[in-house]
Every structure is written in C-alpha cells, then in structure tokens.
Design a protein around this nucleic acid. Structure first.
Lengths: 305, 305
DNA sequence: GCTAATCCATACCCTAAGAGTATCAAAGTC
DNA sequence: GACTTTGATACTCTTAGGGTATGGATTAGC
C-alpha cells in the first residue's frame, strides 16, 4: 500500500527536479532516495520521472501524482493538527447537562457563558434532564459533565464534586401570616412551618433536595404534610403563588421573582442546604472536560471567595 | 511522520471497537496491531482509545482521527487510481498542435473529433502554429503531438511519421485562361504555369511545402516568378481570388470553396505532393499519445484504404 | 465464589524495508 | 580528452514491524 514517506520523497524530487538536491532537502543521502522513487514507480507500475542528463523531470503521471500527493500530505498534516487540537481541548465537543433546578441557579448560565468565551473552538452542547438521566448519559458518554443538586451517590465511574452550597429559604404565598409576621424580614425557624401544607418537587427527577428537606424537617421535630408534588421546582413556586401551600427552595430562586411569592431566610435547620455539584466521568478525562472543570472551579471560587 | 499503515490499523480498530477482530480483518495478529496503535498514540502524544473490559472505544481525539484518517486514506486510494488512469491514457491532458495548412485538411478535425469520442476522459488541447514553433513545443513538452505538412527534418528527439499524402492542385483566379481552357477539367501540366505569377505562403511558418513547390517547378523546367508571399495558406487563396496570380495548393483545399478561385489537377510533376505527417516526441511516449497515434493511424487507414 | 472465557498488553525473536558508504556509468563542459 | 555533474548500483547495517507465546484483568457462568 501507498506510503507517505515515498510520497514526501517524490514531492521533493518533483519540485527540485533534482534527486541529489531533493535528498539534501529531505535530510538523507541520494542512493536511498533513488531507491524510494523506484519503489514508488514499481508499486504504481508507472514511470513517474524522466531521467534527463541534468536532473529529472516528472512524466505526465508524475505531474498528476505531484498534485495528488501534495493534497494527501497536506490532509495528513491537517489530521495531525486536528487531533492535537482536540487533545489540547481547543477544539471538539463538550456536552454539559443540568437538572432543572441547577439551571435556575444563576451560576450555571454564568459559568457556561464565560467558558464559551474562554474556549471558542469548543462546541458546547447543553441538555436539561433529571438527575438519573444525567447520570446515565454521563456513564454512556452522551454527556461530559453535568450540574446536579444532590451528590449522585452510588453511580460507579462518576466523579461528583461540590461547586457551591447555598442555604434554602422558605417560599410563602404573598400575604401569608409568616411572610408578614412581626419579626420583619429576619430568619424563620424551620419548625415554624410545621403546620403548613408543603409543596415539594417530585422525587424521581431529583432525589437529593426532596430527601434533604424531609430529613431537615424531621430533625426539626415534625414531619411535613406534603399537600402537592410539582413536577419541577419552578412549577412548585407557581403553586405557592396560588396559595396552595409553602415550599422550601434554594436561595437563588429569589432571583426568579415569581409574582405572589415571598421568601424568608430559614434558621434552625443545620445541614439543610442546596448544594450544586459538578458530575464528571471518572475515566478518560478529556482535556476539554478538564478545562471546563477548572473554569467551574474558578467561577465558584470567584463567587464564594 | 504519520504513516498510512498506522492510520489503516487505527480505522479498523475504531470501526470494530475490538483489537482482535480488527487484527483479523487486517490479516495480521493482535499483538503487532496493539503495538501499531501504541506507536500512533505515542507519535501524536494523544490517547486515542479507551481500553474497556470488553473491547475498546475511541476517545474524542480518536473520533476525530477516525474521520480524518478515513478522508486521508480515501484520498490516497484516489491518488493511486488517478495516477494509474493517467498511465493508462484514460485521463489526462493531450496537447495537439498543427500547422495552419494541416488544419485545413479535413482529416485533422475528423480524427480529433473521433479521438475525443474515443477517449472522453482526456482533455485534448489544440494549438495552431508554424512548423518550427510546433517542433520546439514538442521538444519542450508543451505539445504531445503535432500535424505538420513536411517531414520535420533534423530535429533531434522527434519522431515524424507519414499519415496521408495528397496531390497538389493549381489554384487559379476564376476566369483565368488556364481555368477555362479547352481541355475542360482534365489535368494541367505543371509547366503550363511557367509564365504565371506565383503566390506562395511564407517560408518560416512552413518550410516544407514552399520548398517542395519550388523544387517541382525547377524539375518541370522553370523557376517560378513569386509575385507575392501570403502569411498563410488560406490567405494565398484570397490573393488568387483577387487575381494577383496563381498558386499550387494541397488538393484538400478544394473543399474550402473560396469564391473566385478555380482548381485544376496537376500532372507532370512527380514528387509534388502535400504529405501530412504526425510528429511525436521520441522519448517518454505517454499512453495517451500512443492511443492518439493509433487513432490517427486507424483514421488514415480507413481513409486511404 | 470459583473457574473458564475473553481480550488487551508484554516479552521475545525474526524478517525485511530502509538508510548509510563506496563506487560506477553516462553525459555534458571546458 | 580530462573533469564535473548526476543518477544508478552494490553492499552493509540498523530498526520498524510482524509472528508466537504468554501474562493479567475483567466478565460470565455454574
């Protein structure tokens, strides 16, 4: 089969029209070059060079080979560069997923925007899905990184590292007695919600926060009465606004400014917080993924520090 | 530098996602294939395959390499075919030249048309020039074949072979006494033109016919009075039509049907004929040129036989 | 939970392609 | 006609690449 070394040799000779000079240019001696040329001619079964008294001249087939060989060599060089660029994470694809609640944290869009600017050659693809789907997609390589709320436990091969941690706040209907209580805007003990109807977001799409809230309530001495389960976090806020009950949501939800919802800081609920995690595949860390991770870390440090 | 064998090996492995099966497909054993892969990874400095418990999987860089390598390999295969096609004369360029007088012979356009149909992949380029320019162009490879009238003597490295031979005829102004003489349309002895003013075509653009006519006249016992030299053969016919004199032209010129010119066969002029030759480069006969030569021979045989 | 099977990696040997040195042969130049 | 130039040839040697044997890790099956 065709060998690139021979093509390189031929191109040099055809360009120099001189075997000895071409050998010099190729950093080799003339005899092996002559043999390389003969090998190429034998392989193709075609005379490629006309031997003149003074140098050589490509035949017509040689002319065609010269052009074709240049193209192949250029493509091969490009190949090398393309692979290296991908390896350096300058180019390629990076698929990032996030849960709906993670998407609502302003940090996520901010860090994605910053990373796009930092690595313009990378095609960043986004996907929103539930935590379990994200974990599955990560495992199977459909995703390279994912923002999740809870530490995705017990999924082998995944690396989950904390990014940010934010307190949870109570989301109350506007005009609710606890929203306008005499304490003003100071913190509300979690136990104050013991009698309220709770609106929580469905379990399968995000096991972490649901469990964390229930656990915190139990630790505060009550078991919350779950009046309604919303499919996703933003939907639960709408239900709160409709007066169907109260909810406990990450503090960053305040920025959503849902009409009809009042927020109050919570206190007396140790361990109740809404963490933001970055999940990665443990094996085969791509350079692009590594760059993304470092961008996330930098972003988190700049935010909390 | 990149080696196509390695690329072929990698493509097979990436496609099979299985080193052992790929080795089988490549007709080799598994260990050397593994080494080939490692060599490629070392050369690029990039991990290309993720080793799974069950087979392998290309990394992102490997995916890119797979696509690029396929492209390079396809191009390389194409190269091989392109060169072979040129060598077989199915493809490529064929530059054919002819003198103005040769161009007027109907055989030349006929054989060119036939050859174009016979070898549609060949780009046939035509060029009209004087005999000496044609010979020079042939020598320097700008032309591959040329139709000339006279055997281009003394040009080293050229091969000139006769194609056709046709008689010369007298070209007379309409109404000239010899054109309408009592002998009707029978042949006219060359000597009958002894007293006429001759219009001949300039020497440098085509030495052959000029000399042949002068020699024939001398053999017929007179030295022609050259009244005018036309730059090219067709121009001389215009001068004849204008009544400035008579001329002697190849019989095929009759088909030109220049208004005001009457033709008469010539007799008593042994050796006076207008040969048509094909001139070729002696060395490095391309397949395309060989095919053209054989087409010309076939055409000539079909015409005269 | 142990054995068997699968599959890639490693170790070692061997062949053969390719690079180097020395030299020849042919053609042009002074 | 001697010299120079330039590609071809002969021979040796290094090394990349292929083959065989085998190891090690993981999964599947009883």
């Amino acid at each position: 089969m065709i060998d690139l070394r021979r093509l390189r040799a031929f191109v040099a000779v055809a360009e120099e029209r001189h075997v000895t000079r071409a050998a010099e240019r190729l950093g080799m001696q003339q005899p092996p070059l002559t043999r390389l040329l003969r090998g190429l001619e034998e392989e193709l079964g075609v005379p490629l060079l006309r031997r003149l008294p003074r140098g050589v001249q490509p035949t017509e087939a040689g002319q065609v080979l010269l052009e074709e060989a240049r193209a192949v060599l250029a493509r091969a060089a490009e190949l090398q560069e393309a692979v290296r660029r991908v390896a350096r994470g300058e180019t390629g694809r990076l698929a990032v997923g996030f849960t709906p609640s993670a998407a609502l944290h302003p940090f996520v869009p901010a860090v994605l925007r910053a990373f796009r600017e930092e690595a313009p050659g990378l095609r960043v693809e986004l996907d929103e899905a539930g935590t379990t789907e994200l974990a599955d997609a990560l495992q199977h390589g459909r995703l390279d990184a994912a923002f999740v709320r809870s530490p995705v436990g017990s999924v082998p091969g995944l690396l989950v590292e904390p990014v940010l941690d934010e307190p949870m706040v109570a989301a109350l209907p506007d005009g609710h007695r606890l929203a306008t209580a005499g304490e003003g805007t100071s913190a509300l003990p979690l136990a104050a919600l013991a009698a309220e109807a709770f609106i929580l977001y469905r379990r399968p799409s995000g096991p972490g926060l649901y469990d964390a809230i229930l656990a915190a309530c139990r630790a505060a001495g009550f078991s919350p009465r779950v009046a309604q389960e919303a499919p996703r976090l933003p939907a639960s806020l709408s239900l709160v606004a409709a007066g169907l009950g109260v909810s406990v949501v990450p503090a960053s939800m305040r920025r959503l400014a849902v009409a009809g919802v009042a927020y109050r800081d919570l206190t007396d609920c140790p361990g109740l917080s809404a963490p933001l995690h970055l999940a990665l595949r443990q094996a085969g860390l791509t350079a692009a993924v590594a760059r993304f991770r470092s961008a996330v870390r930098r972003g988190a440090a700049g935010r909390s520090g």
